[in-house]
Every structure is written in C-alpha cells, then in structure tokens.
Design a protein around this nucleic acid. Structure first.
Ligand code: MN
Ligand code: MN
Ligand code: MN
Ligand code: MN
Lengths: 220, 220
DNA sequence: CAAAAATTTTAGCCCAATCTAAAAATTAGT
DNA sequence: ACTAATTTTTAGATTGGGCTAAAATTTTTG
C-alpha cells in the first residue's frame, strides 16, 4: 500500500481523534485538525474508504480499519523516532522537534526506520514523553497520572506533557522544568485548583490547574 | 522562495547536466534524467522561468540563474549530508544511501541541515567521494584523476566513483574495493585499454577501460 | 539549399488535493 | 413533532504535475 503524505496525515488525525475523544471522528473535527474545508475532508474520506483504510458511511463519521490503524501506528512510530533523533543527536529542544518530524515521518523505508531505531537504542518514549510503538506496533504502557491528581506531600517525577504547543513548552523551559524534573506537592488551593509545587527540591512556584492537568508524572 | 520537491529536482537535474555536459540543458535531456515526457518538461521550464530560477528561451535550452544555482547547490548539500548520515551513522552501504537521500534532501530547514552538518563533523565528501558544498555553497576541490590515466608503476588511492548505479557499486563490493582502497598499476593493455591492477597490495585483477574511467584516484 | 529527421512546443486531457456555494441530512430546541 | 441550527455532502472550479497527439521549429543530410 503506497500512501501519499496527505493520506497518511488524515489517518494520523483520525487515529488521534479516536484516541483523545474516544469516539469515531466526524468530518468537521477532522477538518479542524487538518486545517482544510469540510468538503475537502469528505472527498478524502471517500478515497480512504475505497482503499479500505477507514470505515465510512455518509453522515456517520469514520473509524480506522485494521490496516488503516497499522499505517497510522507506523507513522506515529516514525514521527516519534525522528523526534528522538532531533532531540538527542542534533540537540534540538523539545519545542522545535515536532515541526521537522512532521516532514521526516513521511520518508518511506522500513530499513531506514528500523536502523534509526537501533541507532537511537530502541527508545520507548519521545521527547514529550509519548510512547513510541515498536516495529510490531506495540506501545509501552506505564503508570502515570496528571500532576493535578497528586496529593500534598507527594514527591513525583515528570514523565510527559499532554500539550505540545511551542508557547507552553517554552513556559516550562522558563521554569527550568523538563522530563525527569522532580516535584514535591506543597499545597492544593481549592479556590482555583492551583498547586504550590517545590521544583527540584530548590524552588517553589505556583502552577495553575491547567498546567497541572497537562503535566504527567509518577510517584517516587 | 518555497519550492516544491518537483521543482527542486528539475533544478538539480539542470545543474548536473550543465556540470557533466558543460552546456545548457535541452528539454529532451532533462526529460530523460527526470523520466517524464518532454512536453511535461516544457511546462515546468515555463514555471521555473517565471520564478526567475532559470534562463529560458523557447527551443534554446536552459541555464540556471544565480538564484536557481544557489537552490540547486543547497539541495546537493542536503542530499550528500544525508548520504553521509546514512552511511556513517546508520551503517547503510554506499549503494543504498542514494535512494533514501533523494527523499530526505527535500526536508526544508536550514537549522536541520546545519545541525546535521555539525553532528557529522562537517564532512567534505559523501560516501561516493563527491564534494559536499558548505553552508555558503562552496565545494572543496582536490586533485584527482581517473584510474585510466595512471601509468604502470603508479600507486594510487581510490577517492571517488563517477557512477552511482547499484549494480556497479555492488560489483566493486564484490572486488572488495571501497573508498580508500589502494591500487598499484601493473600494466596497461593497449588492445582493449584494460588495466592489470594490484588491489590493496594483495590481489591482482583486470579492470576494464570503462571501470578505470569511473574510478577517481590520486597518487600516493 | 531543400527535404527529411529530430527536437520542442502547443493543445487538450487526467488525477490528487484543495476551494466556495448550495443542497441534503442530522441534531437540537421549543 | 416540527422547525431551526448545525453538520455533511454534492456540484463545480482551480492548481500543480503529469500524459498523448499534433503542430511548430531547428538541425541534419543528400
Ligand atoms: Mn510531535
Ligand atoms: Mn512528540
Ligand atoms: Mn546520491
Ligand atoms: Mn553521493
């Protein structure tokens, strides 16, 4: 199956919508993710359906078929491996890797991706803490929770971020927060659900509810 | 100037024809290199001319403008740097790197290519011995000659190959010939211009005129 | 130098991926 | 349960990059 970069992007978006929203992807939602007119999405859905990559019925939204899901997973694998390459080998910072990986992910060569995987030492997570599927499409699971769910007194370590916006990642950079940073929850403020957090045992700051919901941590 | 991958490929081909044939590129020659119908080439030449990337007059063949030449040189830089990455970091052999680099070369990010260059330690030559232009577009020159021009008794070292065909490179692999291999010219056979060559001081073989014209060497 | 051969361009078509505007179907509100 | 609002699809157009067949131009050759 040879897919164009555009077709691959649609599959990825449908995959992510199903993952995030836990339901079939609607035309409008896909259009917003991709940044095209809904009419263009309808066109593409027909093409993907004719290639058996999605289950499509007019007006009903779509889900990935088994083969569509495999293509999406492999695309995510390539994307995240390239992000690791850019971050660890070329020393790009985590807010810069995504855009370049968006292009690199479409290079088609199993040999390339598998050698890259080996070169990077079979990483299990990307620079944002997202899991990297292996060659068989299997994701590594791990225990993690949002910082907001930690209790006062808990010590936790940052494993990932749910939001990849450059401005958000730069905000974390400004606070010297990166994957591996340790937090101690000092207090939870009920009125606005913000938290007082001790970062790396040496500085205390206030993090908003929104931020605490984005940060994924595990207890230590 | 944002160029499509297709436009970039045309510029590269026009550049290579000018370099090899030492003259302006004709429609038919370009068509053969790219693998399209001559009518499609004419179409593209009009588009490239309207972007001031080539000098084009109907029926007269084309040359690159200064800006077209810069784009072509930067594309060659990206191609060759990726070839070095694939060969030295991912351990691809020299016959496998070209096809993958054909895709990677179109990833547009100056930051990416310059960091890649640094990561590879600013290589001056690619896995086939071709020079890599630096960020300013400057190629490294070096003294080299075709093996066919070496004289009996000469000791030389292999610096590059003029032909990148997989089957040819595999032929060299079979003879255990790679960049850096040393040759001693034992004899030149006038009747067919073949040469008797001692490879790496330990085995003698006959190389045809054609092969000797492809191998680029320098005296040691 | 004129006719034949080769090259190049034009004309008219196709496909993927996009758009806008209008029509159809679904969903929500009273 | 209608009607109104929203979502989705259809219709028709556009653009980049291709194609073939035919016309125009240049080059070669007798
Ligand atoms: Mn990403
Ligand atoms: Mn990521
Ligand atoms: Mn190459
Ligand atoms: Mn090369």
């Amino acid at each position: 199956m040879h897919l164009s970069a555009t077709e691959e992007n649609y599959l990825k978006v449908i995959y992510k919508i199903a993952e995030r929203e836990k339901k079939s992807a609607s035309t409008n939602t896909i259009a917003k993710y991709i940044g095209t007119a809904p009419a263009s999405v309808t066109d593409m859905l027909k093409r993907l359906a004719s290639k058996q990559l999605i289950n499509y019925q007019k007006y009903r939204g779509v889900t990935l078929t088994t083969s569509g899901g495999k293509e999406a997973t492999q695309l995510i694998r390539r994307h995240r491996l390239w992000e690791v390459f850019l971050a660890t080998k070329l020393r790009f910072s985590w807010e810069a890797v995504h855009d370049i990986a968006e292009e690199l992910e479409h290079i088609k060569s199993d040999e390339l991706v598998n050698r890259l995987d080996a070169f990077l030492d079979y990483p299990k997570f990307d620079p944002h803490g997202d899991p990297i599927p292996n060659a068989q499409g299997k994701f590594t699971l791990r225990n993690q929770m949002a910082l907001i769910d930690a209790l006062p007194g808990n010590k936790v370590v940052l494993l990932g971020v749910r939001e990849h916006e450059t401005s958000f990642l730069e905000y974390l950079n400004g606070l010297n927060i990166s994957l591996g940073t340790e937090f101690t929850v000092k207090a939870f403020n009920h009125f606005d659900k913000s938290m007082n957090i001790l970062i790396d045992h040496n500085r205390e700051t206030l993090l908003s509810e929104k931020v605490c919901q984005i940060l994924l941590v595990k207890k230590i």
